[in-house]
């Protein structure tokens, strides 16, 4: 564990990313105290520029505080990112494990299924899913999970394919362990590091996807989100640039932080790969 931290720390970008990420989490956690009351309530005069009328980041067309919207939106972004990634991992790991461990027809069928999902335009499918199941936080999470599991299935399948022939797996088979317990206790723990790296990138893209959906008006109508803030600022960008600029910066910083942390995790979990890359760059 200490080794892991030492290697992670060597990647300066990853440390910066981790700090930004912790700040965003802190903002999300303290939003109800920093900005008490609903972010939908009027807080000042409409269209106040940043810094005026005591509004740090200005107000929107209905006098709502942009800063409060960003703080409360952080909760939704992180929540949607985490939950939809967990759901996608569940689907992807299960399918990938079945394909990689069983091989044969099961492998073929799962891979065709995965390929299909990778071919169709995923964002269009996500829009369709949310529209048909009516926008709510549940349908958004569901749609994001549906379009983001295929890379997980591929990675897990590849890991399982290479691990299932190893001696320790054969030993477990000879000992008469059940297939399910071999998969869960012998193979999966050894396949964890690529899954961990992938999931930090998946949270990042889930946050981007959620913001795009709520920008198009497909967010949960009862929840304040970053994409909604930008979407509502779009038509008045000539009057109030701050309405769309600041929430965008919030998305950018959060997603950037997650990507940087992902690179750091990759370095820390695959030291051999990191050294190779260091040599080539």
């Amino acid at each position: 564990m200490r080794d892991f931290w030492r290697r992670f720390r060597r990647n300066k970008g990853a440390v910066v990313g981790l700090v930004i990420l912790l700040l965003v989490v802190l903002l999300a956690a303290t939003a109800p105290w920093l900005f008490p009351g609903s972010p939908w309530d009027m807080a000042g005069a409409p269209f106040s520029p940043p810094g005026e009328m005591g509004m740090l980041l200005g107000t929107d067309s209905l006098g709502r505080d942009v800063a409060a919207g960003i703080a409360h939106g952080a909760r939704i972004s992180l929540l949607v990112g985490a939950v939809s990634t967990a759901a996608a991992l569940l689907v992807g790991v299960t399918l990938g494990a079945v394909a990689g461990y069983l091989g044969g027809i099961a492998d073929d069928a799962v891979m065709r299924f995965t390929e299909f999902f990778q071919t169709i335009p995923s964002f269009v499918l996500a829009i369709l899913l949310v529209a048909i199941f009516t926008p709510s936080i549940g349908s958004v999470v569901f749609a994001i999970a549906i379009v983001s599991w295929p890379p997980v299935a591929r990675v897990v399948r590849a890991e399982f394919l290479s691990l299932r022939g190893r001696e320790f797996v054969q030993a477990a088979e000879v000992l008469g362990k059940s297939r399910l317990s071999i998969v869960l206790t012998d193979i999966l723990p050894n396949a964890l590091s690529p899954i961990v790296v992938l999931s930090s990138l998946m949270v990042a893209s889930a946050i981007l996807l959620e913001s795009a959906l709520s920008f198009l008006g497909l967010g949960d109508p009862n929840l304040m989100t970053w994409g909604f803030l930008i979407g509502s600022g779009r038509s008045v960008i000539r009057l109030a640039w701050w309405m769309s600029v600041f929430p965008g910066i919030a998305i950018f910083l959060t997603v950037l932080a997650l990507n940087l942390v992902g690179e750091g995790l990759s370095d820390a979990l695959n030291p051999r790969l990191a050294r190779q890359r260091g040599g080539a760059a």
């Binding site: 930008i230 779009r234 960008i237 769309s244 950037l256």
Partner: peptide, 16 residues
């Protein structure tokens, strides 16, 4: 930068 920036926001900033 562009991995982390929402597409629609880049568009809005260019408009701005």
């Amino acid at each position: 930068t562009f991995y982390a920036t929402p597409l629609f926001w880049v568009g809005l900033m260019l408009v701005l």
